[in-house]
Structure formats: C-alpha cells, structure tokens
Amino acid sequence: MNTDPVVTHPRLQLIALDVNGERYEVITEPRRTLVDVLRHDLRLTGTHVGCEHGICGACTVLVDEQPVRACLMFAAQAEGVRIRTVESLSDGDSGLNDLQRAFSEHHALQCGFCTPGFLMLADGFLAERPEATKEEIREVVASNLCRCTGYQTIVEAIDACATARRGACATPCDTPAGKEH
C-alpha cells in the first residue's frame, strides 16, 4: 500500500506569443497574467508591476496596437495577437525613440516607475490620434497613475512628440512604432 501523499501539479499549457516582433513559446499555467510571463519568463522587465488590479497603468503594453493593462490579461489570452512592450520603442541606433527623448527633454519622469506604462499608453494613443490636442492627451494620461510629476510635464512631452511627428510627416510616413498616421 502506497502511503505517499498525492502530489498534484497545476495544469500547464504551451502558448506561443508574438512579443516585439519575436515569437516565444512558453509553458505556463493558464491563470498566469501576461505581465508575469513578460517579466519572469521572457525577462522583459521594462513592463512594471504596480497595483495588479488594473488601476495604476504601470503594466501597460500594446496588444494589436491598443493599450492594455498586462496585469488584467492572462498570457494565454495573448496567443494570436501582437504584443509590444516598452523595449520595442528603442530605435536601435541612438537607443531612444522620439517619444522617449521627449519624456527626457521635458522632464516627464521622476522615479521612472510609471514611465514605461505612460510611454506605451502614449505610443498607442498617438498612433490613433496623431493630431491630438493637449486636452485630449491630458484626458488619456489621467488613466495612469504617477506619484511624482503632477502630469503636466508628461502632457507636454507627449504633445511635443505629437507636434514633431506631424511636422516631420507632411505626407504619410512611418512613425517609430511602424504605423502610418
């Protein structure tokens, strides 16, 4: 008679993810969030974990170019979609893209914890609304929390980037995110 306790293992599943243009296969529990898989399995630590309730926006990534709170999405739900994290913003040569440079130039960050979420929120928003006004930008960034800057410099940075992109694109052109506007 076997008296060993029964050891149960959570159900695991293989999921394929398209993150920043690269394909990854991950074996994970169905209940794991996208932010946990990004950070712990794929080692893409630019996406931060804040409240884990979808309130703060620190974990914002783009899913099919739409801002999504990665703490509210199961990784298994991300199969078949394109995911972009803050690591995708780098232009490769100089390191920072125009939006990141605008944040730096306008002092739109303090401690930096919330910055990746704001950058991804802004990148997705500007791809859809390149002509956005400061008021529209202010309304969008109000969905993310920052405890340091008071939002004004964040709005100024996004507006400066939008203005520069509009000026550089008198005719349709590719944005750093690879979308036409």
Rank of each mutant, 00 (worst) to 15 (best):
D4T: 11
D4S: 13
V7D: 08
V7P: 00
V7L: 13
V7C: 01
T8H: 11
T8V: 13
H9Q: 15
R11K: 14
Q13R: 13
L14K: 14
I15Y: 01
A16Y: 00
V19L: 03
V19D: 09
N20G: 06
G21S: 11
E22W: 08
E22S: 15
R23E: 14
R23C: 07
E25P: 05
V26S: 09
V26T: 09
I27D: 12
I27S: 13
T28K: 03
P30L: 00
T33C: 02
T33P: 02
D36Y: 01
V37P: 02
V37D: 02
H40Q: 15
D41F: 06
L42V: 07
L42I: 07
R43C: 09
R43G: 01
T45N: 11
T45K: 12
H48R: 15
V49F: 04
G50E: 02
C51A: 06
E52A: 13
H53N: 13
H53Q: 15
H53I: 14
H53C: 07
G54N: 07
G54I: 03
I55F: 06
I55V: 14
I55E: 14
I55H: 08
C56I: 02
C56T: 00
C56G: 01
A58V: 05
A58D: 05
T60F: 08
V63E: 07
Q66R: 15
P67M: 08
A70Q: 07
M73W: 10
M73K: 13
F74C: 08
G80I: 05
I83C: 04
R84E: 14
R84W: 12
R84P: 04
E87H: 05
S88G: 05
S88W: 05
G92N: 09
D93E: 15
D93K: 14
L96V: 02
Q100N: 07
F103R: 03
E105S: 13
E105C: 03
H107C: 06
L109E: 00
F113H: 09
F113L: 12
C114R: 09
T115A: 13
P116Q: 09
P116T: 07
G117E: 07
F118I: 12
L119R: 09
M120N: 12
M120I: 12
M120C: 13
L121D: 11
A122V: 11
D123T: 15
G124L: 10
